[in-house]
Every structure is written in structure tokens, then in C-alpha cells.
Simulated assay, not measured.
Amino acid sequence: MDRLLENKTILIAGAGGLLGGGLVSSILDQGGKVIAADMNIDVMTRQLASLGVDIESTNLTFALLDVTDEESMNQLFSVYENIDGAVNSTYPRNKTYGTHFFDVSLDSFNENLSLHLGSAFLFTKQCAVYFKKHETPFSLVNISSIYGVVAPKFEIYDNTSMTMPVEYAAIKSAIQHLTKYTVSYINDSNFRINCVSPGGIFNHQPDEFLNAYKKKTHGAGMLDVEEVIGSVLFLLSEQSRYVTGQNIIVDDGFSL
């Protein structure tokens, strides 16, 4: 039986991150070839090696990419001529990101929207340009969030220093509509874009938060990266051939 992504080449932007690294490993396991792209190749290589990825694999290529820089984006897409799909798992933000609502300045808010939403626009547009140039099937997966779907449950942050940043809600909801806009504009069944909206992903958050979050789910609590990846693989594969402009929520009922 063929693996899910046999002979497909997938570009992962943000491959040195938590989700991106997991995707690289899983796509290789599913028979795919991966172009792993990030701002720092050395850091990305170490991260992937720590996940058990064979960094010497002939199916793995490393690429330098700053998603906030148009020239860097154009350069990467001009080098490769056989990309079948892409995932944008990047998360660019400034140093004041995560400040509580009343402390967020307009300049900081605008900068974070420019970094994250702006780069999502740039990456999405570049994928569309690539499709128009090569005219071969292409599937892009953008990463949104449950907080792009529902309002924050601020009570789960009580007794912690954490909050749900206002920029995050604005960006992640906009990414879903950017996805719909672009596939509607291109209007070709060979070019697909979909979103995956994960619930919270475990990354050693405080116990108080983890316990409060778990009570809002059906029992799973925070998700491991591996529990989100399956939906991304589905959207990259031929099994979702006519799924386009959609948002798959993976949150064990948190958003209900």
C-alpha cells in the first residue's frame, strides 16, 4: 500500500519550530520529500535531529527563508520546480507580543499584524504565483487556531502570567478568510488552500493553566503535535482532492 504522500514534494515554512519539525518527520515517514525552510538552518537542523529525523536523507532539503522578506520568498520559490504542496507553520512576532490587552500599543499591534498576517499573505500569494507559473496541482495548508474561530476563554489564564494576545485572535481569524479569498480568486480545482485550527498544543505550560484548559475539553486537554499533524497530511494528500477553502478544527471539543 502506498504511503499517503508518496513521491510528493512538500515545502515546510518554519520547519525548525514545534509543529514544523513534527511535520517534516511525518511527511518523510509518509513517503514524501521535504523542503525544510527556516530563518536559521543550523538551529533547524539541530531541532530536526533531536526529533530523530535523518538529516542526511536524500528526501530532505534545507532552505533559508525569512517569510517576512519578499526577496527571500521569491528566491526560494524560484529555485524549485516540483513543489506539490506547502505548509506555513511560521509564527513571526515582535518583542512586545503577548502583552495584556490594555498594554498593547497601536504600533506594536500593527507591527505584529504586519509580521504574521503580512507574511501569511506573502506566502499564500507566492504559492498562487507558483501554481500559475507551473500549472501543476498544488495544496497549501495554512495554520490558524481555535481562537480564530471562537472568543478566548480568559478564565483559563487566571492565576498565571499568561493571556491570549489580541493580535493572535485578529491574525488567526484573518488567515481563514485570506485562505478563502485566494482560492476563490484563483478559481482552479488544481489549486487548493485549507486551514487547520489546532487547540492548545502542549509546550510545558504551567500546571494551573493545563488543568484549567483540560476542563474545557472532552478529556484530552492540551494536544501533542502528533495529534494535529494527521489533519495536515490529509489536506496535502490526494485523499482531500476536492477539499478547498475549508478549516479543520482539532481541539477535542474546546471550541464547542
Rank of each mutant, 00 (worst) to 15 (best):
A63I: 03
L115Y: 11
H100K: 14
A63V: 00
Y97I: 03
I83H: 08
S57H: 05
L64M: 06
V79Y: 11
M73P: 00
G52W: 05
P152S: 14
F101M: 05
S50N: 14
P92R: 13
I55V: 15
S89H: 02
V53G: 05
R46Q: 12
V104D: 12
G118H: 10
Y147A: 00
N112M: 03
S144A: 15
G118Y: 05
T45L: 00
D84P: 04
P137S: 09
Y147R: 00
D84C: 06
A49P: 00
I146T: 11
F154Q: 09
F102I: 09
L65K: 03
S114R: 10
V149P: 03
N74T: 08
G118Q: 04
A86N: 05
E111Q: 13
N112H: 07
G148A: 00
N112C: 09
V129H: 10
N110E: 11
Y130N: 05
N88D: 15
K133T: 13
S105L: 01
G85I: 07
T124E: 02
S57N: 12
L51S: 03
A63W: 01
L76I: 09
L51H: 01
D107W: 02
R93V: 14
F138K: 08
M73W: 04
C127P: 08
D107I: 04
N112W: 02
S57F: 08
R93D: 02
G52M: 09
V67C: 15
L106D: 00
D54H: 06
F101K: 08
G85V: 07
N88A: 04
A120G: 05
E111H: 10
Y147W: 14
Y130S: 11
L76A: 10
L65P: 04
T136H: 13
D66K: 10
T58E: 15
L115M: 13
V67I: 14
A86Q: 07
S139H: 14
T90H: 03
L117S: 06
K95I: 06
V129A: 06
V149F: 04
E71K: 14
L51Y: 10
I146Q: 05
S78L: 08
F102K: 10
F109K: 01
S114T: 11
P92M: 14
N112G: 10
P137M: 08
S119D: 11
A49L: 07
F77L: 12
V53T: 05
N59C: 09
L65T: 10
T90Y: 01
D107G: 01
K153P: 00
E111I: 02
K132V: 00
V104A: 06
G148W: 03
E56M: 09
K95G: 02
L140F: 13
D69L: 10
H134G: 00
E71V: 14
P92K: 12
V53W: 06
